[in-house]
């Protein structure tokens, strides 16, 4: 079982990293031939950095759109971030001070993350418009997060697993020295679904995470009159005329 999980997690990590780099490379290489920021937009690159930062940290546009979706979405994402950071303890020895500090918050973040994602799912099921636009994969994605969160929380609050063993396994993975993974069904479910998440990341709507940085309507400075904007293929037309 340890070997199986080791192979799965290595594979998933590889697909995640290579796949994501490939997608990001694709976004970066594709030209943006025209200036299309959604205005009013910042006129300087500092302003653009601030705009994207507000978008990434506070979901500024979503806040304007719908308070329920914003609240639930933000709760989910902020909790997820905290939970991920908390999990660094399984990959570091000694554990970094700030990671140790956030442990208790990280645990409660697991609960708020579950609340957030459950709320988003309720919205997807109950609001007619959102139900209409939902595909089976939209629902499954939320189920995936719910099961990951529940299996993780179960190991904390209901049926403990040997966390020292888990940590040994993870540290071993990092040095290509496979250690035994504690036998625990909840842990198996948890790790398996995390691997699934990593595997589908580069081919699913999870690409919204890198996408937000490459969105021309958000990442362009509004200075078209002051600075001539050109792109490869657009510029080539000039030599032809």
């Amino acid at each position: 079982m340890s070997a199986l999980f080791a192979i799965l997690l290595y594979l998933a990590t590889l697909v995640f990293i290579v796949g994501l780099l490939y997608r990001i490379g694709g976004y970066a290489r594709t030209p943006a031939p025209l200036k299309i920021p959604t205005t009013p937009a910042p006129t300087t690159s500092t302003g653009v950095v601030l705009r994207i930062t507000r978008e990434v940290l506070f979901f500024e546009s979503l806040f304007k759109a719908n308070l329920w979706t914003w609240g639930l979405g933000w709760l989910f994402h902020a909790s997820l971030a905290l939970v991920l950071l908390r999990h660094l303890r399984y990959f570091t020895e000694p554990v970094w001070g700030w990671v140790a500090f956030i442990q208790p918050f990280g645990i409660y973040a697991g609960i708020t993350m579950l609340l957030g994602v459950a709320g988003l799912w309720a919205r997807r099921l109950l609001v007619e418009r959102i139900r209409y636009i939902s595909t089976p994969s939209d629902h499954l994605m939320l189920v995936l997060f719910i099961v990951i969160a529940v299996s993780g929380l179960t190991m904390k609050f209901v049926s403990h697993t040997d966390v020292v063993g888990v940590k040994n396994f993870m540290l071993g993975m990092m040095y290509f020295d496979i250690q035994p993974l504690p036998e625990h069904p909840g842990l198996y479910v948890h790790l398996f679904l995390v691997a699934v998440l990593l595997l589908i990341f580069p081919v699913s709507k999870l690409l919204h995470a890198p996408g937000v940085f490459f969105s021309p309507s958000r990442n362009q400075a509004d200075n078209p009159r002051e600075k001539r904007h050109t792109s490869g293929w657009g510029k080539k037309l000039e030599s032809e005329s």
Binding site: I130, I133, D138, K205, G211, S215
Partner: peptide, 24 residues
Amino acid sequence: LLGKYRSLKVYMDACVHCGACSDK
């Protein structure tokens, strides 16, 4: 067009069906 316009390429991938735009 997916190779010529970053907007289209990113926009095809990035939507999560959150519904923020649905009533706008």
